[in-house]
């Protein structure tokens, strides 16, 4: 990364909290499902986190 969000040169590798890819200038920070501030690369990842939680819940109910 050219500049980390701390302002220092490199050595901070920030990843999307869902898909895990490196995040650069384009980023979304918002509260995740556990109520903690989290970093996302895209709206898709915000939505997938919710959908995945629903799928898990559904599976737990079935079994």
């Amino acid at each position: 990364m050219r500049f980390a969000s701390s302002g220092y040169y490199v050595e901070k590798y920030e990843k999307c909290s869902v898909c895990g890819k490196l995040v650069y200038e384009e980023r979304i920070t918002q509260v995740n499902l556990e109520g903690k501030e989290a970093l996302y690369c895209s709206e898709w990842c915000i939505e997938w986190e919710k959908k995945r939680a629903e799928l898990k819940k559904k599976k737990a109910t079935v079994s």
């Binding site: 590798y13 990843k15 895990g20």
Partner: peptide, 15 residues
């Protein structure tokens, strides 16, 4: 193909 690799796991190691 969309890949979701949770950070901090064996499939997406953190520095």
């Amino acid at each position: 193909i969309k890949v979701v690799a949770p950070p901090g796991t064996v499939v997406n190691v953190d520095y």
